[in-house]
């Protein structure tokens, strides 16, 4: 009476990817709406949509995390233009790779890992912001924007810690 495992897994994977993509886009939209009220300098955002990227990378594997990051970048391109797409893509893909490798390797290891979701998310958040900054420096053809690196590292640590805690809470339930 049981479904064939392969078929069932494929359907489950498709459903999970769909839910995570939808969550990523809804959170991106929410942040875009909230950003003018938060008035963070340098266009910094809380990065809540990366919860979906991290969950996909941790639970399904890093290629799926990359996929969700790509969906986010295309969404940014449609709603906010090519510059936003490039910046979103640079940050999202790098942080998805980092989260995927660090979290997945940890789950396969027998020994307890050194970092929890919070530490991985902090590294991902800082890498995300620095990748965007490097992209901005390339677009502007000047290293002048690199002066904002310290502020972006601090923002990355804060938003990474918050999203990491949320990933941990949500991750236990799915």
């Amino acid at each position: 009476m049981r479904d064939k495992p392969l078929k069932r897994n494929a359907a489950r994977l498709a459903a999970r990817l769909g839910v995570l993509s939808a969550a990523a886009l809804a959170l991106s939209w929410l942040e875009a709406v909230a950003a003018p009220f938060l008035r963070l300098p340098l266009g910094a955002k809380p990065g809540l949509s990366n919860i979906a990227v991290m969950l996909a990378a941790a639970k399904l594997g890093w290629p799926y995390g990359l996929g969700i990051a790509l969906v986010k970048a295309v969404f940014a391109g449609i709603t906010r233009g090519p510059t936003a797409m490039l910046l979103s893509g640079a940050g999202g893909l790098l942080s998805a790779l980092i989260a995927g490798t660090l979290l997945q390797r940890g789950e396969r290891q027998a020994a307890p890992r050194a970092l929890s979701e919070v530490g991985v998310s902090v590294i991902g958040g800082v890498a995300h912001n620095l990748a965007q900054l490097a992209c901005a420096a390339l677009i502007m053809q000047t290293p002048g924007v690199l002066w904002s690196a310290p502020a972006l590292i601090v923002f990355g640590v804060i938003s990474g810690a918050v999203t990491g805690m949320l990933v941990r809470r949500v991750g236990k339930r799915i």
């Binding site: 970092l115 929890s116 530490g119 690196a149 590292i153 990355g156 640590v157």
Partner: peptide, 21 residues
């Protein structure tokens, strides 16, 4: 939070402070 998490956060904050100098 694990000890490694706190170490990562501290290292990054020190790096940010150093870059301000």
């Amino acid at each position: 939070m694990k000890r490694g998490d706190i170490a990562v956060i501290l290292c990054l904050l020190i790096l940010a402070g150093g870059l301000l100098l």
